[in-house]
Amino acid sequence: MSTKWYDNDTDTFFEEGNRVTWFGDENETEGELKMIGEKLFGIQWDDGIYIEYPNDHQDAIKKI
């Protein structure tokens, strides 16, 4: 299981534990990247909600 991914567009490595935000979110929702798997990644948002997203949504996440 991978614990990181590379974003070619921003030349950025994402690893578990990174602080992230949802790209384009007007409210600038922030959270911590908790899990990177083969098909899903999970974020613990600061409002207490944990959500797993399909890996094809990785381009919507940016590092803080």
Rank of each mutant, 00 (worst) to 15 (best):
12 T>S: 15
27 N>P: 00
58 Q>Y: 04
63 K>D: 00
10 T>F: 06
39 K>E: 13
50 Y>T: 15
11 D>W: 03
56 D>H: 14
2 S>D: 07
36 I>A: 07
40 L>E: 05
20 V>K: 12
44 Q>S: 15
25 D>N: 15
50 Y>P: 04
46 D>Y: 12
18 N>H: 15
15 E>H: 08
52 E>V: 03
11 D>M: 09
39 K>P: 00
39 K>W: 06
36 I>L: 10
28 E>D: 14
16 E>L: 02
42 G>Q: 09
19 R>A: 08
51 I>M: 05
28 E>K: 11
27 N>C: 02
63 K>R: 10
30 E>D: 06
64 I>Y: 03
23 F>N: 01
20 V>F: 10
40 L>R: 00
48 G>V: 08
36 I>V: 15
13 F>I: 07
27 N>F: 07
44 Q>Y: 04
21 T>A: 07
49 I>P: 00
37 G>S: 10
30 E>S: 08
49 I>E: 14
50 Y>H: 11
32 E>Y: 09
54 P>N: 05
43 I>E: 02
57 H>M: 01
55 N>Q: 08
52 E>L: 10
60 A>C: 06
55 N>S: 00
5 W>P: 07
37 G>I: 02
51 I>P: 00
54 P>A: 04
39 K>C: 01
35 M>E: 08
24 G>W: 02
29 T>R: 14
53 Y>S: 03
53 Y>H: 13
64 I>R: 04
